[in-house]
Amino acid sequence: MADPASNKNGTARLADLKAKAGYVPVIRRNGFVYAFLSLLVLYAIFLLPAKGSPETLDLGRIILFCLLLLVWAILIFTDELKPEKMKTVIVFTIFIIAAWLYYRYSTARWGEMGFLFFNLEMIQKAWPTLVEGFWTTLLLAVCAAIMSTIIGLLLAIFRSFENRVLNFFIIAYVDFFRAMPIIVLMMLIYYALPFMGIRLSAIVSGILALGLNSSAYVSEIFRAGFLSVKKGQIEAANALGLNPIQTMRYVILPQAFRVVIPPLVGNYVASAKDTALASSISIIELLKAGLSQKSLLANPSPLIFVTALYLIMFVPLTRFSGYLEKRMKASQRQVRL
């Protein structure tokens, strides 16, 4: 309102408030914060115990220093008056100090890191085995995904018939394979079943264990997808004279499919990561290949390379499934493919 009296009153109140609040105390001024930061850096460089494994007493000093750093950082980050730029500077400083402390006190042989971890010559020697391992991992992941999709979809369709006896068995199946750790399942299939006369090759056992486990999750995902299709949709289709198969094909599946894609991709990624467990039943997949080459060459470079490969494969995939999920949430119409 343009009432001058109330306006004046408002400004007066603001001035009053300022007077009461007073100035920002010295310790909260920006200059002071930067000065303190410099002091901390100097302290870290010159006053902390010398390089090497610190004594117990020195350890206390280091921990004290870290606590101080932490409390101080929290105080600044919760202070809305501090500029964003200052917070950025502090983040970088803390990272650098942390790295510096780690470098200073760890007993690692930093100088030999190139030779030990990033030894191209060793990776070259291990290369053929690693490539073979990679293909095995891919084979495991793809076969398990196909198997779990088929079983999962069938289970979900059978579940939607709502037959009590059928449902009991399906729920028992899902519970069993969700509760069973994959590595236990693998060992069961590969090491226990042969006593019964069921001899499966390692790779088949691995695919079976991964696929069975994953199928339990896939069936739940599809079930949720079917349930997400509203009853009115099915009624509308029926009222138009579509038979159950046409209703499934033109109305239910397309709608369920859109809902199901993001969690399904997420599940495939998780299942693909679990292929590393197959190394426990002597399948030479990527991890086992890296491990065996590490032992053979007495150099961990192959293992480091394998780690990097896992990251290169799965960071984009997890990103992708996260993106799908976000896109589905963002759009009421769900994912349009």
């Binding site: 009115g232 949709q233 009624e235 509308a236 709608q255």
Partner: peptide, 11 residues
Amino acid sequence: MVFQSFNLFPH
């Protein structure tokens, strides 16, 4: 048949 909640196929 025409329903109260329309029931058009959203896809």
